[in-house]
Design a protein around this nucleic acid. Structure first.
Length: 141
RNA sequence: ACUGCAAACCGCUCUAUCGUUUUGCUAAGCAAUUAGCGAAAAGGAAAGUCCGGACAACGUAGAGUACCACACCACCUAACGGAUGGGGUUUUUUUAUUAUCUUGAUAAUAAAGAAAUACAGAUAGUGUCGCAGAAAAUUACCGCCCUGAGCAAUCAGGGUAAGGGUGAAAACGUGCGGUAAGAGCGCACGACUUUUCCAAGUAAUUGGAAAAGUGGAUAAACCUUGUGGGUUGAAAUGCCACGUACAUUUCAGUUUUCCUUUUUGGAAAGUGGAGUUGCUCGCUCCAUUGUCUUGAAUUUUUGAGACAGCAGGAAGGGGUAGGCAGAUUGGGUUCGUCGGUAACGAUGAAACUAGAUAAAUGAUAGGGGCUUUUGUUUUGCUUUUGAGCGAAAUUGAGGUUACAGAAUUCGGCUUACAGGUUUGCAGUUUUU
């Protein structure tokens, strides 16, 4: 009995650490449309954070995330893919800080990360922006 | 050895940590699913979406027409506008021969090599042809000749296209005959086109002979001939689940005739609408029904109007946008053998090698290889003894790149590309 409980605890902690699963992806078209019409935002260079509170949670995670790189500033699909992977990787490595702060408060939030820089930055610069934004975000919610 | 061009091939690699997608086994769970251990995971162009297929949906018989594509021959292919081989034409280089004169140039012919080529028809018809020139396709400016008028200069009418001039191109070139002057008007030689015959070749075509002819260019102007083509594309399409509104506005039709009549039913035409692969004809289908008010006629007929219904068109609006199949084993890949000049075909063996869907295939750190550059050491050549050029070793600092990311799938084409390897051709330098 205790072993099963411990096992279960380990699973939850492990899941929240560094993985990025399907339930954390924002897929609902309704929520994305709502983000663009009534979402609030701030800028933590080179990323713009847009968020909105959802009425009913779609999964057990406190945040569902989507990310975009505008086609206008990066017309080649290769560059867009590279930036999208760097942003997702840095979000995956740093999201645990905001998960611990939000687990107590109820409700689920949808977040959209928009890349606003004009040139392709390397991984460390993007990670700095993500870290700063994730520190700021809990105070604004 | 270096440089340039063309073709073919390659398109950095290994380890650790943390992750993503699909999947095999094991365990847990009713199940959804979760965990552990493994396996696989983006290119030569995945790009452009330019051709051609596979596959799917959309036809109530059929016909005509429009539109589009292609165009020397053979062959390959599931198919192609693609590939392979051959032929013609044009341009160019080299060599040889002949002719001319300015004696080293020009022109012609032949052979060899290279490059280009949307390469059916200009003798079906219509159109166009800048500038110059009289005239750009039945033309006549200066000329030449004949006739008439006039003393003459010249004028009028007609014939001609030899000569001049313009042009990229002026109705085949040279010579002789011929003529009032001329003209392929006639003849000889030659050039070119078409047809027929003979020879070579599967054929395009080439060589020879004969006959007819002399026609400007342009079809990447319209067009003609021949061949082929239905349209739309995986957001296709099928199934399951969930959900919603035959609710709103608006448009047009609802007529006539005939047959049988107990009610009523049936048929034809017209009108309106829908389907019919772009259009037209034709074809198929649907609606054409009832109630009320009022007028005429007079006891069941008819005219007008209103309302509802019917089968539709248009506008605007509402709902959903989840899952499974399609969908990853294929005209495929690799390695052999045989046939073919080659594209390719036949046959044998082996392996299974992406399948996402707000869209996986990544991030970080370190090493190896490659490469750029700084310093030091050794060494070769040149030498004006200052140095310059090259090679090797070592050390430090960088870079690891270019073009570019599967989206149903296959064969091609086109375009982009850092760096490297091989082959061929051309040029320069050095040595023999």
């Amino acid at each position: 009995m205790i072993a099963i409980l411990c096992n279960h605890l380990f699973f939850t902690i492990h899941c929240n650490m560094f993985t990025f699963q399907k339930g954390e992806k924002l897929k609902s078209r309704k929520t994305i449309g709502k983000l663009f019409t009534e979402g609030k935002s701030f800028i933590s260079y080179p990323i713009r954070f847009v968020w909105v509170k959802m009425e009913s949670p779609l999964s057990e995670f406190p945040i569902q995330m989507a990310l975009t790189v505008p086609k206008r500033s990066f017309p080649k699909a290769v560059n867009r893919n590279r930036l999208r992977r760097r942003i997702r990787e840095s979000y995956r490595l740093n999201k645990h800080s905001i998960y611990t702060k939000l687990s107590s408060s109820s409700g689920q939030y949808g977040i959209m990360l928009i890349y606003i820089a004009r040139e392709t930055l390397d991984f460390h610069q993007i990670e700095e922006g993500i870290k700063k934004g994730l520190r700021k975000l809990p105070h604004r919610l």
